[in-house]
Design a protein around this nucleic acid. Structure first.
Length: 552
RNA sequence: GCCCCCAUCGUCUAGAGGCCUAGGACACCGGCUUUUCAAGCCGGCGACACGGGUUCGAAUCCCGUUGGGGGCGCCA
């Protein structure tokens, strides 16, 4: 009678889903799927000061985008709901009462200042590592009530058994934590909410969680949790502490980093707060000032606007960032799975289903990993190259939907699919906009990259300009404006003039897009249409003439 | 400071005493292809942190050093 495996992902709603969180969620999901168990989502919203509006919805959207669907949780009824801890308070109260009555917990009413003084005194005494010392006498119910009425902060602490604890970890092996490292931790905060340690264990026990996979930063908490499971007479789940994911430079992948990059750029640009606020679309001058002083973070959309204005790329930290940058969810899943886990075979490309079939805790490593965006990009490129057209179209549509309006926003599906084909070899969906965006913008809106103009139009006594002048009437007279016909025409012209194709295609490209980046020239012109092509050539010739005059 | 975890190419990793002249992937470098940007193809560079043991034999086991990471909250 094998016990049914139940794993859970228990994020606190402080924003979008983070890469590290996604990895934890993924491994829990994979383990449940592999073992025929259930994957539970629980929202840990017990900190009244940290919860962010609608963050749980964002978290869920990101999980769903990745394909990590839960069997029980918010929006998916299960037998142990509700799945927001804020809605389970009666359960915590009840458990606290039980521990109090059993003499396993007690009231404590030190203020923060008193606690701090105790700590300082211990340090001065030369104690190694201060721990809260259990009082010799515990306050009674009435004393606790009186203290609370008098405005003192009253908490409930757990009487931590005074013994060594061995954490049997499925990844790390047996880790022993000495009694001296442990202390009577807080169960219920003065505001009446449970602490993380308490709520986690109450819920894991209530929800019959069998395997707890979480980040290694939780390892030292585990004795507390084991002691609580034991106090409740509940079975202790299996633990597996996952290595941590870092940035390439070894720093933590923190949301703050996004602000840092943009802030540095803002400083380098030397812009005033007022101007920064305008660029970010913010009216709150105080917010901008605080942000510049590294005292706060900017809302995501404001940060994105500012980054765009300053021409910097905000590093992707949260799953949503990667979505906006044009990555495929299945690629993210594949890549993240390989951060800490490997199949033991040379296979590197996995679908979610394949991961479900191959996953095992035995093959999870112990060493921290750095998140290499270059490798992720390579994975995305390969996946895109191999994906079915329908898949690419759907993903492209999703990318357009999560980004601000751009030149490609309004296109119909047929055109979108066409662009995807023309851009074969692209790395992210953002590349399609980079490469084709100029073709869907008013003629007046295209800006010339002066380096490109010089290189391909003006250089060699205006060789490029000459090509354009000669080519223009031919294009105007072309009977058939299709990619095939244009290809023939352009090649014929190049042949005739004994020019390499590049000498013809590049001037055209610059004339028509302002840059050297676009699809193959015949496709580019076909997409643009005869009229706009000719109009843009004229506009470019005018621009080139002006540039030449300036240079003189 | 105290406690805990970890240690193979720049990065992710394979490796559970002889199969290792240490394998793969990404990056990098060189070349090919080329109508730009990408993509693609071929080749190359590149690691067992250090010091002691154990053993006929050590990347693999033990100890120490060093380095990296995490924890020491009424945050989660």
């Amino acid at each position: 009678m094998a016990e049914i495996v139940r794993t859970r992902f228990a994020p606190s709603p402080t924003g979008y889903l983070h890469v590290g969180g996604a990895r934890t969620a993924l491994f829990n999901y994979l383990l449940a799927r592999r073992l025929g168990g259930r994957f539970i989502l629980r929202i840990e919203d017990t900190d009244q000061t940290r919860n962010i509006e609608a963050a749980d919805a964002k978290l869920m959207e990101d999980l769903r985008w990745l394909g990590l669907t839960w069997d029980e949780g918010p929006e998916v009824e299960g037998p142990y709901g509700p799945y927001h801890q804020s809605q389970r308070r009666a359960l915590y109260d009840e458990h606290a009462r039980r521990l109090l009555d059993a003499g396993l917990a007690y009231y404590a009413m030190e203020t923060r200042e008193e606690l701090e003084a105790l700590r300082r005194a211990a340090v001065q005494r030369g104690d190694k590592g201060y721990r809260y010392a259990r009082p010799t006498r515990f306050p009674s119910e009435s004393e606790a009530r009186a203290a609370r009425d008098a405005g003192r902060p009253v908490v409930i602490r757990f009487k931590m058994p005074e013994r060594d604890f061995v954490v049997p970890d499925r990844i790390l092996g047996e880790v022993t934590i000495r009694a001296a490292e442990l202390s009577d931790f807080v169960l219920m905060k003065a505001d009446g909410w449970p602490t993380y340690h308490f709520a986690v264990v109450v819920d894991d026990a209530a929800m019959k969680i069998t395997h707890v996979l979480r980040g290694q930063e939780h390892l030292m908490n585990t004795p507390n949790h084991i002691a609580l499971f034991e106090a409740f007479g509940a079975p202790v789940p299996q633990f597996a502490h996952l290595p941590i994911i870092f940035n390439m430079n070894g720093t933590k992948m923190s949301k703050r980093e996004k602000d840092k990059v943009v802030r540095d750029a803002a400083r380098a640009a030397g812009l005033a707060d007022e101007r920064l606020g305008a660029l970010a679309g913010l009216h709150d001058a105080e917010l901008v000032r605080a942000w510049r002083a590294e005292q706060t973070q900017l809302p995501g959309d404001a940060l994105a606007r500012l980054a765009r204005a300053l021409h910097v790329t905000v590093p992707e930290i949260e799953i949503h960032d990667f979505r906006r940058s044009g990555y495929l969810p299945e690629v993210l899943v594949n890549f993240i799975a390989l951060l800490g886990w490997n199949p033991g075979t040379p296979q590197e490309r996995f679908t979610l289903d394949e991961l479900c079939a191959a996953f095992s805790l035995e093959r999870v490593g112990k060493t921290n990993a750095k998140f290499d965006r270059e490798k992720l990009l390579a994975f995305n490129t390969a996946a895109l190259a191999a994906a079915e057209p329908a898949r690419k179209l759907a993903a492209f549509r999703d990318w357009l939907a999560v980004n601000e309006r751009g030149p490609l926003t309004e296109l119909d599906d047929a055109t979108r699919a066409h662009l995807i084909e023309l851009c074969r070899g692209f790395r992210t969906f953002a590349d399609i906009e980079l490469k084709c965006g100029a073709l869907f913008v008013p003629d007046q809106a295209i800006e010339y990259d002066e380096k490109a103009v010089k290189q391909h139009l003006l250089k060699g006594a205006g060789q490029g300009v000459a090509v354009l002048r000669e080519l223009r009437p031919r294009l105007a007279a072309l009977s058939d404006w299709t990619a095939a016909a244009l290809d023939v025409a352009v090649r014929a012209f190049a042949d005739e003039r004994q020019l390499g194709l590049g000498k013809v295609a590049q001037p055209l490209r610059v004339a028509v897009t302002g840059t050297t980046i676009s699809p193959q020239i015949s496709d580019t012109l076909a997409l643009l249409g005869r009229e706009r092509t000719l109009a843009r050539i004229d506009r470019a010739l005018t621009h080139a003439a002006a540039s030449t005059r300036e240079a003189v």
